[in-house]
Simulated assay, not measured.
Amino acid sequence: MFSPDLRYTKFTDCASCPEYRKQIFKYRSYPKGMMIPQEKCMQNTLYFLLKGTVEVNSEEHPHTIISDGQFILQPIGSKVEFKVLEAVECILYLFERPINVCNERFNKGASIAETSRREAIVMEMCPPLRYFVEGVRMYLNDDLLCAGFLQAKRTELVYLPNCYYTLKDLAAFYSPIYRYSKSVRYFVMQNYMKAKDVEAFAQLGGYSTPTFRRLFKETFGEPAYQWMLKKKCEDIQNDLTTTEMSISEISYKYGFESLSNFSHFCRTNFGQSPRSMRTIKRENQ
């Protein structure tokens, strides 16, 4: 018979596995008085507050106080800042679009959200959801970040609200995503990785290239090509300095025809080779 203590011993090293993922759930803690400056949400994000109190300021939640046991949604592309009123612990869940676990309820909820004019709401964690989020905190602290495991937890997270909250509340909660999904900004943030150039990007959205360039400039304040290059540089730098992906994998991910082309891109835009960028990052750790 196993000792009960073995239940709390972790025997795997997920960080060395190619299925290791970091960007689905995140744990964050902040001291009282800390200001988290305005930043743009690069994905739809749920903020689950496990401890403390914060003031949220965004278009969706202007000067809103959220406390232990509550959670909010910020849609992709939205800008949000936080002021920590009491020391905080929270779990973030990042996703591209709501997952459908029940066709009937999903379609009814989407219909309500699209026609409703209710403001975004702050939700209270029901006990099953609270237990789930507490469990996610434990898994993150144990570095349990296997892609398959996290995908299962993602499905569970979608399933729990679907069971324990009314359609009216869920529609109001997710309404910023449904409304925002009609915008040019949402289309761009969801699809920029799929487009090789501006012309392909315009075609993907069903726009003429001149129309897409105009709408893009009006929305983002800079030309589409310049924004796409900047975003590509940010994403490549992030992959080189914060992930364990091989340089070959990163090169392939961003559509370079060869490693030499990828190296030339990095030297041109960062002043260093991909290998040098990764070496400097490790030396500074």
Results as ranks from 00 to 15, higher is better:
I65S: 05
N100K: 05
Q151E: 10
D68M: 12
S116L: 09
R185Y: 06
E19V: 13
E156L: 05
G148V: 02
I99K: 02
F48Q: 00
W227K: 09
I280E: 15
L145K: 14
N191G: 08
K196G: 04
S111M: 10
L140C: 11
G205R: 09
G148W: 08
A15I: 15
L170K: 10
M1N: 05
P274M: 06
E124P: 04
S248N: 13
R278C: 02
S263T: 10
R97N: 14
A120I: 02
F25Y: 13
E119P: 05
R278V: 05
L144Y: 11
R97P: 00
L140A: 10
I72D: 10
Y165M: 08
L240C: 07
D169L: 12
Q190K: 12
Y93K: 00
R179Q: 07
E222G: 07
E257Q: 09
F220C: 00
K22G: 15
E96G: 01
F212T: 01
K232D: 08
K40R: 15
I250L: 08
K231H: 11
E19M: 14
Q272R: 12
E119I: 08
R7M: 14
M125A: 11
C146S: 09
Y207T: 11
D197S: 10
R28V: 15
Q190W: 14
G148C: 13
Y225W: 14
D5E: 11
F11E: 11
